[in-house]
C-alpha cells in the first residue's frame, strides 16, 4: 500500500490549507487589531512546520523501510519555501510598509532577523534547483547542495528561539523534534553502514 504516494493531492491540499485559512481570516476581518503581526507570525510558524515535515520524510523512510515518503518530499520542501517567502514578504509589506531601508537596517542590526533572513537565503537556491531538469544537470552536486536544508533548519530554530521574549516552551518543542529527526538519521545511517565496515 503506497498510501502516502497515492494520496499526493491530499497532502498538496493539506499543506495549502493554512494559506487558504489565512485568506479567509483576511477577508472576514478575523485577524484582530494588529493584523500585520498576526499574519507574519502565522506564516512564519507554518514555514517552520512544513520544513520540519520535509525533514521528517527521510527518517520515516529509514524507520518504515518504505520509500514512498520521498514522493512528497519536494512538494513539502517547496511549500516550506513558499510560506517562508510569504513570511518575509508580509514582514516587508505589512510590518515595514515596503520601506526597504528599514529591512536592511533590521537585517544588519537585529540578530534574530539576520539569521531568519539567512535561512531564507539558504533555502532559495534549493527551491530554484528543485526541478527535474536541475536535478539531472547538477548530478552529484545537487545532493551536496541540498544538504543545505540542515543548515537552514538550524538557522530557522535559532531565529525562533531568539525572537521568543520570555516563554521558550514552543521553541523548545520544535528544537526537540529537530534534534530527534537529526538523531534518527544518524542512528539509521550508522546502522546501515556498519555491516559494510565489518566486512572490510
Amino acid at each position: 500500500m503506497e498510501l502516502i504516494k497515492k494520496l499526493k493531492p491530499i497532502w498538496f491540499l493539506l499543506a495549502l490549507s493554512p494559506a487558504v485559512y489565512l485568506v479567509y481570516l483576511i477577508v472576514t476581518d478575523g485577524l484582530g487589531p494588529d493584523p500585520a503581526k498576526t499574519v507574519v507570525e502565522f506564516l512564519g510558524t507554518w514555514a517552520l512546520r512544513l520544513l520540519w515535515v520535509t525533514l521528517s520524510l527521510t527518517p520515516l523512510k529509514l524507520i518504515t523501510g518504505s520509500g514512498q515518503f520521498i514522493a512528497i518530499r519536494r512538494m513539502m520542501g517547496l511549500y516550506a519555501f513558499f510560506y517562508a517567502s510569504l513570511h518575509l514578504a508580509a514582514y516587508l509589506v505589512f510590518m515595514l510598509g515596503l520601506r526597504w531601508s528599514n529591512l536592511w537596517e533590521d537585517i544588519l542590526e537585529r540578530p534574530y532577523i539576520t539569521v531568519g533572513f539567512a535561512a531564507w537565503l539558504v533555502l532559495l537556491p534549493l527551491a530554484v534547483t528543485s526541478t527535474n531538469k536541475m536535478i539531472r544537470r547538477l548530478g552529484k552536486k545537487w545532493k551536496q547542495l541540498h544538504k543545505g536544508v540542515y543548515l537552514a533548519a538550524c538557522l530557522v530554530i535559532l531565529h525562533f528561539i531568539w525572537l521568543a521574549k520570555s516563554n521558550l516552551l514552543e521553541p523548545i518543542i520544535y528544537l526537540t523534534i529537530l534534534i530527534l529527526l537529526f538523531a534518527l538519521r544518524l542512528i539509521k545511517q550508522t546502522a546501515k553502514t556498519k555491516p559494510v565496515v565489518a566486512n572490510d
Binding site: 494588529d34 493584523p35 500585520a36 505589512f94 510598509g97 533590521d106 540578530p111 534574530y112 525572537l163
Partner: peptide, 23 residues
C-alpha cells in the same frame, strides 16, 4: 534609542489594517 528587537522610530497605532497600516 534603537532596541535590539524593534526599531522604535515608528509605531502601529491599533487598530491597524493590513493594506492601510496605521503607522
Amino acid at each position: 534609542v534603537s532596541h535590539p528587537r524593534w526599531s522604535q522610530k515608528r509605531e502601529r497605532r491599533l487598530p491597524s489594517s493590513l493594506f492601510n497600516p496605521n503607522y
